[in-house]
Amino acid sequence: MPWSREDMAARAARELQDGFYVNLGIGIPTLVANYIAPGMKVVLQSENGMLGIGPFPYEGEEDPDLINAGKQTVSELEMSSYFSSADSFAMIRGGHIDMAVLGAMEVAENGDLANWMVPGKMVKGMGGAMDLVAGVKRVVVVMEHTSKDGEPKFKARCELPLTGTNVIDMVITDLAVFSRATRKDPFKLIEIAPGVTAEQVRAKTTAHYLG
C-alpha cells in the first residue's frame, strides 16, 4: 500500500528537530505542521513575512491581514513576529532557516529540482522556491513517485526548467524515501512503503540510487 498524503507529511515531520526554524511549501508540505511531535518546538516561517505561524483560525476569527505564503488565513502565536519581504528572504538566503519541505515536479539523481514551470503550458512562477533551495540548510522534497501519466519524477536528469542545482537532501514519495548524507553523495533508498517492493520502486524510478 503506497503512503497517503498524510503518511508522507508525517514522514517528513520525522526529519524535524527541536528548535528548528522551518519553511513549509504549499500542498502536502503544509500538512507537515499537523505531525510535529508533541513537546517539540518548531517555528514555522512564511515567505510573506511571518515567523511563528499558528493554526488556521476559528470561524469568525479569520483576518484578511494574516495569511501564509499560500494565501490561506492563519493565526498568530505568542512568539510570532512580522517583517518585510526583504527581511524574510534575508533569513532564507542567509542560511538562518534549518529546513524546508517543498513539492516537486521532478528531482534528479544529482539533487537538481524542477518545480516552477512547464514551458508553454503552465505559467505560475517560482515564488520563493529558488530562494529557499539556495539558502535553506536542508531541503526535503515530498511528491508523488510518478506523474499523472505514470512517468517517473525521480529521474537521471530534470527535463523541466530548474529551480536549483544540487539542492535536495531527501526525497519522500508515496512509495519510498531516498536520502543522502551530504550534497556530494549519491541518493540511497532508505525506506519503502508497506507492501511495495524494491523492484517496484526501481521500475518506477529512472534516477540512479544506492540500495
Partner: peptide, 20 residues
C-alpha cells in the same frame, strides 16, 4: 478587505492542527 483562501479550524481540533 478580501480573503483569497479562507481556511478554518474546527473548535475541537488541537492547538497546532492545520487542515489543508
Amino acid at each position: 478587505k478580501k480573503i483569497e483562501k479562507r481556511t478554518l479550524r474546527k473548535r475541537q481540533e488541537g492547538a497546532h492542527a492545520v487542515v489543508a
